[in-house]
Simulated assay, not measured.
Amino acid sequence: MSEHVTISPGEAADRLAIRELVDAYAHCADRRDAKGQMALFTADTHFVVYMNAKDPIPSQELHSREALAPVFAELNKYDATTHFIGQSTIFSLSPDRATGETYCLAHHVTVDDGKRRLMLAALRYLDTFVKMDGSWLFAERRLYVDWLEERALS
C-alpha cells in the first residue's frame, strides 16, 4: 500500500477537477454530445488511437480539436453506449500540467434486423492535462484498446 500524505486544498481541487474532466468525456460520449466532448480538449490537442495496445504504431492520430468531430460522430452508429470509468491515476501534477492513466470498459450496443449485439472494449487512456484559464483540459489523449469482446444480447 502507498503511504498517504497531506495535500493542499488546491491540489485536492485540481485532482477532483481532472477526475471530473475524465468523467465528463464518458458522459458526453454516452449522451452523443460531440460538441461538449470536443470542448474538453485544447485547440491543438493530440489524440492517438491504438486499436491494438501491443502495436507501437497508432491506428489513428489527430492533431486538433476540430479533427475529433468525425471520431465522436462515429458513436452515432450505436443504439446505446456506456463508458464505465474505473481507476484513474494521476502520475504527475503541477499547477498547470498533469499526466495520468484511466481505465474504461466501453459497452457498445448495435441493433441489426431486430437483433441486439454488444461489443465490449477494455480501454486505457494515457493523458496529458493542462490547466487553461482555470479549467483542466486534455492536451493529449492516447487511447489503447487492450481487448474486445462481441456477443449477442437478449
Rank of each mutant, 00 (worst) to 15 (best):
T102I: 04
A43Q: 13
D33A: 02
F72A: 13
T99P: 03
A24H: 10
S94P: 03
A98F: 02
D96E: 13
R116H: 14
P58Q: 06
E101C: 11
L75M: 14
D112A: 04
D55M: 01
A67E: 13
C28W: 09
R32S: 02
G86Q: 12
E20Y: 09
T89N: 03
H63W: 12
A17L: 09
E61S: 15
V48C: 10
D44P: 07
M119T: 12
T99D: 03
D79G: 09
N52P: 04
V109K: 01
G134K: 05
C104Y: 01
Y50H: 14
G36C: 05
A29H: 11
L62K: 02
F84Y: 14
P56M: 11
A73H: 11
L62N: 00
N76Y: 06
D14W: 09
A39Q: 12
R97D: 10
M1Y: 09
K54L: 04
S64R: 04
A24S: 12
E101G: 08
E66C: 02
H4L: 14
T81K: 00
P95E: 04
A53V: 10
R117L: 01
L93Q: 15
S88Y: 07
S92P: 01
F41T: 06
L16N: 10
M38Y: 03
V22S: 04
D112K: 05
Q87G: 13
V48W: 06
D44Y: 06
L16C: 07
E150D: 08
A12I: 03
R117W: 03
Q37A: 02
H107M: 07
A29N: 15
A67T: 05
T110P: 01
R141M: 05
R151L: 10
L16S: 10
D55H: 00
L68V: 01
R142K: 02
S2E: 12
D23N: 11
E20I: 01
G134W: 04
L123D: 04
G114H: 07
E66R: 04
S92K: 00
P9F: 07
M38F: 03
R19A: 13
G36Y: 05
E140V: 10
V71S: 15
L75E: 12
A12M: 13
T82G: 15
V71P: 14
H83S: 01
D112W: 01
L118Y: 00
P56E: 09
L62V: 03
K115I: 15
N76C: 05
E3W: 07
D113H: 01
R142C: 03
L40M: 08
A67Y: 06
D112Q: 07
D30W: 00
Y144E: 15
A24W: 07
L118E: 01
Y78W: 15
T42P: 07
A67V: 05
S88A: 08
E66Q: 08
A43W: 09
R32G: 02
A43E: 14
Y25M: 00
A152H: 12
E149Y: 11
V109H: 03
Q37R: 02
V109E: 00
V111C: 04
R151I: 05
E11R: 08
R97W: 10
L137F: 14
L16G: 09
W147T: 08
H27S: 09
F129P: 06
F129T: 05
E101S: 10
Q60F: 07
L105H: 13
L62D: 03
R124T: 02
S64D: 08
A26L: 09
L120E: 13
H108T: 00
G86A: 10
R97M: 11
